[in-house]
Design a protein around this nucleic acid. Sequence first.
DNA 1: GCAAAAGTGTTAGTCTTACACCCATGA
DNA 2: TCATGGGTGTAAGACTAACACTTTTGC
Lengths: 244, 244
Amino acid sequence: MKDFNIEQYLPNLSIDCVIFGYQDKELKILIAKSKFGKKSWNLPGGYIKKTESIEKAASRILNEKTSLKKIFLEQFKVFGDKDRIVKSSLIKILKQEFKKFDPKIFTTKVVEWMTGRFVCIGYYALVDIHKVQPQAGDFDEYIEWRSIKDIPAMMHDHSEITLEALKTLRQNFDEKLIGFNLLPDTFTMKELQELYEAVFERTFANNNFQKKMLDQDVLVRLEKKFTGAQNKAPYLYQFKKKLK
Amino acid sequence: MKDFNIEQYLPNLSIDCVIFGYQDKELKILIAKSKFGKKSWNLPGGYIKKTESIEKAASRILNEKTSLKKIFLEQFKVFGDKDRIVKSSLIKILKQEFKKFDPKIFTTKVVEWMTGRFVCIGYYALVDIHKVQPQAGDFDEYIEWRSIKDIPAMMHDHSEITLEALKTLRQNFDEKLIGFNLLPDTFTMKELQELYEAVFERTFANNNFQKKMLDQDVLVRLEKKFTGAQNKAPYLYQFKKKLK
DNA sequence: GCAAAAGTGTTAGTCTTACACCCATGA
DNA sequence: TCATGGGTGTAAGACTAACACTTTTGC
């Protein structure tokens, strides 16, 4: 990191992303351990360049963290409490640590810019976790996938933002058929069902689940998947829209 | 209007409101004829004070236009295209007319601030149209209710914002039971049905509609309403939550 | 009594949920 | 042939939509 030119960004406006992935029958999100403040976790986020749309900005931020392009990405809520950052207990510590980190980059002006009031646009993204190479940002000690059942307390209002994202995900999951973005190209019906069970934290009856999915006419049945297990080999499926 | 102090507002961020009302079996929205630009209609909107939350700002703006407090108000989408205002064909005319209007208020600095890039948070509101006294703002020639079937072309991307608001209204109408905010305290089942028909632009069967509403257990049946017509007098109903 | 509109009842169809059962696979 | 899990069939219940019918009101 050579410099941080605040002039290129819109002031007082930020984007935070809740990036969902799915692995080992668990719904996970990508969170970052910050270099600043002890035990301080936060959502991947960034600022909006004066030369780009907010959609473009969200897409760029996502790409920086996941190295993926063209991923499912949707805004879900704006968080605009007056003191959502300023009143955070961390803010004094953060200001000090920014300056210590690199006084040339973090001038008083830059630090005040970064720790002032921000209205935050929340985006949620769905990715195939196996295709992602998580990239820690300049302010991240490291970045990692964590099960939604095991999310640590996060900076500012990031815990609230995560809950709202999860709520939106569940609301849209069935209707918009967005779940397929979390799976590999091909998958068995059981795997699809387990995804649904992870997202809604409940079980489904396998026969009814299969019927519901097949009735929607969005799956293509491919060849069987022989796993070596001593049972009937399951079919592989593919999401139709991916064929287009 | 004595002055316009841009320092008190967050830069580059605005709020636009789609205010829904219901009258004469038609769903209406409140739109303003601008003092600037010919035939230029726009949605009521405003800026966010540095000292208030975005919810508070939206609520204040609503109060300024309707004189109502405590009305149903919800954010629905952020509009953040880079050139959503700057590329508007009106912008050159607007800059000139601002300065002509009052050069003391509209200094070059203020005009540049107002006509620069804005990310806009869209809110929609539901009001009892009979309780509203529409108030034209400083930049409005006048403000009026217009049926959603008769909305003129609007400034910038305000037509798109209106369409998105209507989409959100329809999505939330059934589930969140927000329609009652558009009606007076008491109403007949027929009136409620006509509201639904106006919102969804379709008809409903009266018996099934009644059953659906009563089954939801959110209505209190009050005394009958004798209109003088030579037919059975309809019951009046009240929304239960208003009783609390 | 009559027309108009409110309100109720009843049935057919669809969708959801639960239970039972058959089928392919490899040891 | 047997255990295992995948896949299918069917019937009961809930919900939806369409039809027919009864009730109240003022002339």
